[in-house]
Amino acid sequence: MASQGTKRSYEQMETDGERQNATEIRASVGKMIGGIGRFYIQMCTELKLSDYEGRLIQNSLTIERMVLSAFDERRNKYLEEHPSAGKDPKKTGGPIYRRVNGKWMRELILYDKEEIRRIWRQANNGDDATAGLTHMMIWHSNLNDATYQRTRALVRTGMDPRMCSLMQGSTLPRRSGAAGAAVKGVGTMVMELVRMIKRGINDRNFWRGENGRKTRIAYERMCNILKGKFQTAAQKAMMDQVRESRNPGNAEFEDLTFLARSALILRGSVAHKSCLPACVYGPAVASGYDFEREGYSLVGIDPFRLLQNSQVYSLIRPNENPAHKSQLVWMACHSAAFEDLRVLSFIKGTKVLPRGKLSTRGVQIASNENMETMESSTLELRSRYWAIRTRSGGNTNQQRASAGQISIQPTFSVQRNLPFDRTTIMAAFNGNTEGRTSDMRTEIIRMMESARPEDVSFQGRGVFELSDEKAASPIVPSFDMSNEGSYFFGDNAEEYDN
């Protein structure tokens, strides 16, 4: 783990906690998980779902989305002020799938948001429990990260689609708070800032007046979040320049895209947490497990152990491969979309394939898809080993990566060399080191050039047997250095459309 220093740990961010010791953190995270579980059980009762239907990941996603929508204050306010045809701002819903006479049927349900809020609060001892809501947002974000390569979004903001390893959390809503900021990748933060800068260039009043003052505060806050992700002084200094700019424009845009590229080699610290679907927490609570009393951590053995003992089902389209669908969801559960496939294969105990080789589309089923041909199958979400999630980018030494994705962002704290394609990355730096950030740029390029592919990161860190909950005997895996390590390699994943 990167030293926490003055930073709060993510469990504290996750639970809005002030400084807590490890036991208190485990208890408050457990409380959050228990609340999600209780809410899910109650919703299944309301909807009269069978046990099997309640364990269907598509039903879980609909129920999670309903509660997130019920608590989305800004959108609710907007919907009330701008009524649109056929949208009731006070209601929320989605597809629920039921097994009827041996076939899967889709039923569109509609609930009062007020009623959903009441059920959620009741499951969370009367609190709004925003930490639990954020947790579900991060699960949705991790699922998107594993399912889609955001080529269009990258290109629109002047970045290269091969930089997708920097895009963790790119679909997280803005209201996801400190826990959300911690899991956002460098590219995601750059993209958010670039969008602001572009608006400022096109709209003279963007930075002016009372609204402009708020915009400015948001801009500086985002700059500080991004600065905190960088691990070298030169990158941090460049972020200070971007933040202090009187009138952010093209120079800042250039600096930010430069920094994003540099992060492929001088990786930023991005938190990883295993956020599971509500249909995993519900049955665990129903079986009598007391998360608050037992304590829970999002970055240790607990999620692995929970998945070892969970039964989750998914709808499967006619030509999809259930094992591939399982891999997709497994990666999402562990926030591992940008991790090295060699490491993932070792931990999972079966070969993890790149996205383009998977015969599976996303987990969600569109409303126009034919239910007649839908089957369902068990998702295999178990693992051979477990490993500690990392909050750091690993040290800054790398190795060759593949054509589709030119770097990785480690999820697990496991000893290995970190793949990246130096030639491709360095070719993108057209040696432009003039301007006010020239000395920093020169320094950053120097550090990137001296990074050695064969150097090892996370020295001495290994994986653990599932029986080793105290992480007492690390097993340090050895990897084939020459092997392909990137998930979005030469990829044809669908595009994420909101």
Rank of each mutant, 00 (worst) to 15 (best):
Glu24Ile: 14
Thr360Trp: 03
Gly37Trp: 11
Cys223Met: 12
Asp439Gly: 10
Pro322Gln: 11
Leu381His: 02
Ala178Phe: 01
Ile116Cys: 15
Thr62Ile: 08
Arg261Ile: 07
Gly393Lys: 02
Leu68Ile: 15
Phe253Asn: 04
Ile63Val: 10
Glu64Gln: 10
Ser407Arg: 07
Asn430Glu: 14
Gly30His: 04
Glu115His: 06
Arg117Ala: 09
Lys31Pro: 00
Glu372Ala: 13
Glu73Ser: 13
Met13His: 00
Thr411Gly: 06
Lys470Ile: 01
Ser392Lys: 03
Ala22Cys: 00
His334Val: 06
Phe291Asn: 07
Met426Asn: 12
Asp128Thr: 14
Gln405Ile: 00
Gln459Ile: 04
Ala332Ile: 00
Arg204Ala: 04
Ala182Cys: 15
Glu320Asn: 07
Leu256Gly: 06
Lys227Leu: 00
Met374Ile: 15
Met440Arg: 06
Ser377Gln: 05
Ser262Val: 03
His324Gln: 11
Gln398Pro: 02
Gln311Gly: 15
Glu372Val: 13
Phe304His: 13
Lys470Val: 06
Trp120Ile: 04
Ala336Cys: 15
Arg19Val: 14
Arg26Asn: 01
Arg38Ala: 07
Arg26Phe: 15
Asp290Cys: 13
Asp112Glu: 12
Met137Ser: 03
Pro322Lys: 08
Thr130Tyr: 03
Gly17Phe: 00
Lys90Gln: 02
Lys348Arg: 15
Glu115Thr: 05
Ile138Lys: 04
Asn76Ala: 15
Ile63Met: 12
Gln149Asp: 04
Asn432Trp: 09
Ala182Met: 06
His82Tyr: 13
Val363Asn: 08
Ala22Gly: 15
Ser467Cys: 15
Gln4Lys: 08
Leu61Arg: 00
Gly30Trp: 05
Met222Leu: 09
Arg38Met: 15
Ser310Ala: 01
His272Met: 05
Asn370Trp: 10
Ser407Cys: 05
Asn59Ser: 12
Lys184Gln: 14
Arg19Asn: 09
Leu466Ala: 14
Glu369Thr: 10
Leu154Ile: 14
Leu193Cys: 05
Gly209Lys: 11
Val190Ala: 15
Ala427Phe: 03
Gly30Val: 11
Arg65Gln: 02
Ser407Asp: 00
Ala387His: 01
Thr232Leu: 03
Arg389Val: 04
Gln459Met: 08
Asn101Ile: 07
